[in-house]
Structures are given as C-alpha cells and as structure tokens.
C-alpha cells in the first residue's frame, strides 16, 4: 500500500458501518465531529490531557484526538451516541443523571465513555479504582463527587 493523502476506511461506529474517505492528517475526533456529524464526542484540549474526546476503539478507551482516522480502518468504535438502547438510557447514563454527575455537561460524554470502559474491565470498582480510571478526564464543574458516586452506583447496579 502506498502513501496517501486521502485514505479510504471502513469502520463500524455504534454498530453502523461507514465507508468513508478521510484525510490522512485528520484525527478520529475530527472525522467523527466534522465529517460524520457525531458531535456528542467533545473537543477540549485536543492533546490527550482532558479525556473529553474519549471513545472506545475495539473495546479500549482512547482519546480520539490522538488517533488518526486513517488508523481506524476495520475498527469497531463506540461513541456516546451508541450507549442508549431503544431510547432507554444505559444504567450508567441514568446513574450520571440521578447522582448529580452532570453540570454543564461538556465533560460528560468523555466521562461516561471512560466510566463505561472502567465498568467493562472492572465491573465492581472500588473508589480508588474509579478515581484512577477517570483521572484522565477533567471536569471543571462538579468536583467529581457526583461522578464518582454515579460510577459506584452503576457498578453496584450491574450486580443485580
């Protein structure tokens, strides 16, 4: 395969397959937001320091601002838009709502995705594990209390 300025990729995003041409230098974040109009994923720092752009790629939480879209050929991607099922919030989303984990909401999509990854890999996290798992996601509004509570609660929910 030769070097290309535009790269054709086939990706599955929230269980929908997309065949798109992306610019070699565009990040996954840019393609999600600007090309595919999936604007739920947020851009804040653009340099991997805030987690606002977190999505799951092949089941792993990553900062989509630090991934080239071209690298995503063949990948399975889950974004915040893919968490609801038949119009129902996921238990984690519901917990964010109920436990006062959301203020302005700008960090929320990334925070929810990081928490989703945490709960997939550690279904019943301790408080320390939650704080570690979310330490790459900045929030300027909540002081994190509600967020940690929400994840704790969602972790317990999945028990039953």
């Amino acid at each position: 395969m030769n070097e290309m300025t535009t790269v054709p990729i086939a990706v599955t995003i929230n269980q929908t397959r997309y065949d798109v041409e992306v610019k070699a230098h565009h990040t996954l974040l840019e393609v999600l937001r600007e090309q595919l109009h999936l604007t739920g994923t947020k851009r804040s720092c653009g340099e991997g320091e805030c987690g606002a752009c977190t999505v799951l790629v092949n089941g792993e939480a990553v900062n989509s601002c630090l991934v080239l879209a071209a690298e995503m050929d063949g990948a399975e991607i889950l974004t915040i838009e893919g968490l609801e099922r038949n119009g129902e919030l996921s238990p984690l989303q519901q917990a964010f709502l109920d436990r006062g984990a959301v203020q302005c909401g700008f960090c929320t999509p990334g925070m929810v995705m990081a928490a989703e990854y945490l709960l997939r890999t550690t279904p019943h996290p301790t408080e320390a594990e939650i704080r570690e798992g979310l330490s790459g996601n900045l929030c300027r509004c909540t002081g994190y209390e509600g967020i940690v509570e929400a994840v704790k609660h969602a972790g317990r929910e999945t028990d039953s």
């Binding site: 999936l38 604007t39 739920g40 994923t41 947020k42 851009r43 974004t79 915040i80 838009e81 968490l83 609801e84 919030l89 989303q93 519901q94 964010f96 709502l97 109920d98 006062g100 959301v102 203020q103 302005c104 909401g105 700008f106 929320t108 999509p109 929810v112």
Partner: peptide, 17 residues
C-alpha cells in the same frame, strides 16, 4: 434531576462548537 441532563448524558446537547 437536571433539566437538560438527559441531552447531556447522551451527547445530544448542542454546544456552540
């Protein structure tokens, strides 16, 4: 619960960007 909270946990909330 926060009015507008649902849009914020689903990524539907529209910000200026």
């Amino acid at each position: 619960n926060r009015v507008g909270g649902r849009d914020r946990v689903t990524g539907r909330q529209v910000y200026s960007a």
